[in-house]
C-alpha cells in the first residue's frame, strides 16, 4: 500500500461519509453510484475499491452495516452513519475545506497586484 492509495482512500472515505450523511442508509452499490453522480460523472470509480474502504470505516466505528432489502426487492447490505462517523465527517470536512482553501490561495492568480 503506497502513499497514493492512502490519500485516495482518505478522500474516498470522506465521500462515503458525506454520501451516507445526505442519503441516510444505503448499500455499497448505491454509494458507488451516488459518488459518481455527485461528482458529475467526472470520477470513474472502480467499484471494487469501495469495499475495503467501507470495511475500514466500519472497523473504526464510523459506519454500521445491516442486511436489508433494496427498493427492487434484492437482499443487500446497508450502511449508515454512526454518531462517531458524524463527528468524524464534520472534523474531516472542516480539515479538507481548510486544506483546499489554502491550496486555492496558492493556485489562483493574485488579482490585487
Amino acid at each position: 500500500m503506497g502513499d497514493k492509495t492512502d490519500v485516495w482512500q482518505g478522500t474516498l472515505a470522506l465521500m462515503v461519509l458525506r454520501t451516507l450523511e445526505s442519503m441516510g442508509s444505503l448499500h455499497g452499490y448505491g454509494i458507488a453510484r451516488r459518488i459518481e453522480q455527485t461528482s458529475g460523472d467526472i470520477l470513474s470509480l472502480n467499484y471494487g475499491t469501495l469495499y475495503p474502504a467501507l470495511l475500514k470505516l466500519e472497523q473504526e466505528g464510523a459506519i454500521a452495516s445491516e442486511w436489508g432489502t433494496s427498493e427492487n426487492n434484492r437482499k443487500a447490505k446497508f450502511y449508515k452513519l454512526t454518531r462517531t462517523g458524524r463527528k468524524q465527517l464534520q472534523k474531516e470536512a472542516r480539515d479538507w475545506e481548510q486544506t483546499t482553501a489554502i491550496l486555492a490561495r496558492f493556485l489562483t492568480p493574485a488579482e490585487d497586484q
Partner: peptide, 16 residues
C-alpha cells in the same frame, strides 16, 4: 459475508 455482499452488488448493478 463478503461473497454475499459482492453478489448482491452485482445483482443490483445488473438490474440497473
Amino acid at each position: 459475508e463478503l461473497s454475499a455482499e459482492l453478489e448482491s452488488h452485482l445483482q443490483l448493478h445488473t438490474d440497473d
